[in-house]
Design a binder for these strands. Structure first.
Lengths: 243, 243
DNA sequence: GGAAAGTGGATCCGGATCAGACCTTTACGG
DNA sequence: CCGTAAAGGTCTGATCCGGATCCACTTTCC
């Protein structure tokens, strides 16, 4: 067993220290917040000075990132007091490549992301169910559940993202919530491109409902099981596209 | 529910883009590989030029990091052909603060890390048990299991780290393995500082054995359960230290 | 109407970092 | 014994990036 000197015990220990330069990472971070619906269309980003400080990035770099997303049509800036940078309401986005192509392009990272998600999300659901949630957390779960039943695809995807993130956060572990947000972003494009069949939607709604009610009634086993089924269902859809 | 504008759905979306400068991160990365035993004492790091390329860091920065760890007594460099940078055999390390102090210093990140680990590791164990492992993977598991039964504390910790990482890797998801390596590092100091009681060691050995045999015999449920018990046991020990 | 405040927009400087070439030391092979 | 190879050690100029400062625009308040 001559260990490959680039790894040890199979762990890629010499992976890159930084995933790109400050500009690229900042763009990715802003895009994440927008695409996952964490900042809804029409809402305003924090002022540049404040946001730059929170991201630990110079204002110059932040402005470059904002500029790039503005040119890409995601953001709009207005000057003056009560100005700011706003998330643009997206157009009908008819230029989306089909899911099968996207899935193929992801290569080995797709099964990786699916496996990772399959570990994280059921774990978070079980954790959430085993904690006593605050009233705010409970009502968030319910309201996002409602949004995720929406039929309009755009609203639905945002609601779905937010619901899953709310469950992750309800688990009480920031690291876990962060990991789920990351893996969700990796799958987001793909999930958004899944052909929507009435049957699938109903199935998904049903699973969401069972997950949330298991969490609210404090049943970790049921929450984990329901979330596992939910993950398996979407994974199945995606794998099916690869034929 | 006036959402705090720094978060959305409780997800800390404007967290810092980079966790420190290149130098600091590089030091941390090298320290991780050393402390988790991924590069054993006496072994050589890859040549600087090669390592710098893999870490996507300039050779200057890498050398600064190596220099810092050399001064801290972790590394040693030799020039000339067949020279290189070597991991030093650690001294008896008598200057370790006690676990209770360390645990208190971690503050809220301790329960976070424990919860996260409690999700990741059982998930990885179950995943590993559900896959058909290569002969190399199987033999790695067995040999690290043996090492983890060692009584010498230093050898034992390294063996334990490697065993857990090997299980993580056997799950087949690089992202998952990476996450486990990260969370393990966060807990490493603490685990190394736990007072060793004969009874605890035997218990831990037994759990490790059950986990590995469940994985090797392809029983995901048993693997998950055994790993959950194992995580709960060490978490209990740590929480106990906080009184 | 005018001043103050709060926002995005633009520019400059210094330190951190990078890429590359070159030097020094050591071991191996003819 | 000497030349070459492989490693760490050193230097330099270009580039990235953060901190600071000032400008331009719009709203709010007196």
């Amino acid at each position: 067993m001559p260990a490959d000197s680039h790894e040890a015990a199979g762990v890629p220990m010499w992976r890159p220290v930084r995933g790109g330069n400050a500009f690229e990472i900042t763009v990715a971070r802003l895009a994440q917040a927008i695409k996952l619906g964490l900042v809804a269309p029409g809402e305003r980003l924090p002022p540049e000075r404040e946001l730059a400080e929170k991201l630990r990035v110079s204002r110059v770099t932040l402005r470059q990132a904002i500029g790039a997303l503005r040119e890409a049509g995601y953001l709009e800036s207005r000057r003056g007091r009560s100005g700011g940078t706003f998330v643009v309401h997206p157009g009908p986005a008819a230029d989306r490549p089909d899911a099968a192509t996207l899935a193929r392009e992801m290569g080995e990272t797709l099964p990786d992301a699916l496996d990772f998600r399959r570990v994280l999300e059921p774990g978070a659901a079980a954790l959430a169910a085993s904690r006593t949630l605050s009233a705010a957390e409970r009502s968030r779960l319910v309201s996002y559940l409602t949004a995720s039943r929406e039929r309009d695809p755009a609203v639905r995807r945002t609601g779905d993202s937010r619901l899953h993130l709310a469950i992750a956060v309800a688990g009480g572990s920031p690291s876990l919530a962060q990991a789920i947000a990351d893996v969700q972003l990796r799958l987001d494009q793909l999930l958004a491109a899944i052909p929507v069949l009435r049957r699938n939607l109903d199935h998904s709604d049903d699973q969401h409902t069972r997950i949330v009610s298991a969490i609210l009634s404090g049943d970790p086993v049921a929450a984990r099981t329901a979330m596992e089924e939910h993950c398996d269902a979407t994974a199945e859809l995606l794998r099916g596209l690869l034929g």
